[in-house]
């Protein structure tokens, strides 16, 4: 709409600003909370303006440790989360690319059986099959390590389906031209299919990274060793301080830090991500 009506412009801006404020307010509160000391955070009313403790709290999070016995370093938890999120995102993308490639481009016996087997797993997210999955992971000796944290979450069908759809939109002639040019199946995959789907891969990476980063239930089950805790778990546990009041200033600081990697991923991949969701030209 290209109209020049000051009132309408004013009004729509007001709505937009209000929307931004609603979304941003909790983040602001988190930031404010992270910049006060423990005592101020137990007094009512809660502060709305930042205090002067931000860097002290930051040091507490990284150096002194958080949690009940102050033994947990936010740095280690973030590192664990980062590894978990990366393994889930990258693992899922690799596996689904390959399985979608097989399903779309190869005619092998029982192809449709495999297709439906993958399809069925759509209806069985980790939360539903949590007990048998735990059993399997435990028997494989994967408790308390990165494999146990990630492998069960990697196996899922959503990404396979997405890539199947993407590959189906790639014109057959591209494959045929590549065949005449002399490309074998894996060459075609590497030289043509991957670059052509690169925006979709980026979009999926963003989604899966955040999905992996935010995992809570599964890491809670699979890790008992504190050195394997993830950040989301860590925050939850800090809230459950047994005797004392929760240390809100540190919780807020940790939360703030936990938001940073997903935000960085989104910002870094924004251009590709949006292209991946909107682009249709192949």
């Amino acid at each position: 709409m290209i109209e020049n009506r000051p009132l309408a412009t004013w009004f729509s801006h007001a709505i937009l600003i209000l929307g931004v404020a609603v979304v941003a307010f909790p983040i602001w509160i988190t930031f404010v909370g992270a910049s006060h000391d423990a005592i101020r955070m137990t007094q009512v009313p809660l502060p709305l303006l930042p205090g002067d403790q931000f860097f002290i709290n930051l040091k507490a999070a990284f150096v002194d440790g958080v949690g009940n016995a102050k033994e947990q370093s936010v740095g280690i938890m973030m590192f664990n989360s980062l590894i978990m999120a990366m393994m889930i995102a990258v693992g899922k993308i690799i596996i689904s690319l390959l399985s979608a490639f097989a399903i779309v481009y190869f005619r092998f016996p029982l192809r449709m059986v495999f297709f439906w087997m993958i399809f069925v797993t759509l209806m069985l997210p980790v939360e539903v099959r949590i007990l048998p999955t735990f059993e399997v992971v435990a028997n494989l000796g994967m408790l308390n390590n990165y494999w146990g944290l990630t492998v069960p979450l990697i196996a899922s069908a959503t990404a396979t389906f997405m890539f199947r759809q993407v590959f189906l939109t790639v014109p057959d002639e591209l494959l045929e031209a590549a065949r005449i040019d002399g490309a074998g199946p894996m060459r075609f995959f590497k030289d043509i299919l991957l670059p052509v789907s690169r925006t979709n891969i980026a979009a999926l990476f963003v989604i899966l990274f955040i999905y992996g980063w935010n995992q809570y239930l599964w890491p809670l089950l699979i890790t008992t060793d504190k050195s394997m805790y993830t950040i989301v778990m860590g925050i939850k546990q800090m809230l459950e301080a047994a005797e004392e009041a929760p240390e809100w200033h540190l919780i807020m600081m940790t939360t703030l830090l936990a938001m940073i990697p997903p935000v960085l991923v989104v910002i870094g991949m924004q251009k590709l991500f949006i292209k991946g969701l909107t682009e249709t030209e192949k």
């Binding site: 014109p171 002639e173 591209l174 045929e176 031209a177 005449i180 052509v196 690169r198 030209e281």
Partner: peptide, 15 residues
């Protein structure tokens, strides 16, 4: 040892 021109050209879009 043949080469083919397709109706929609089938050029590799990313190259």
């Amino acid at each position: 040892d043949i080469a083919m021109v397709f109706q929609n050209y089938a050029l590799y879009p990313h190259m």
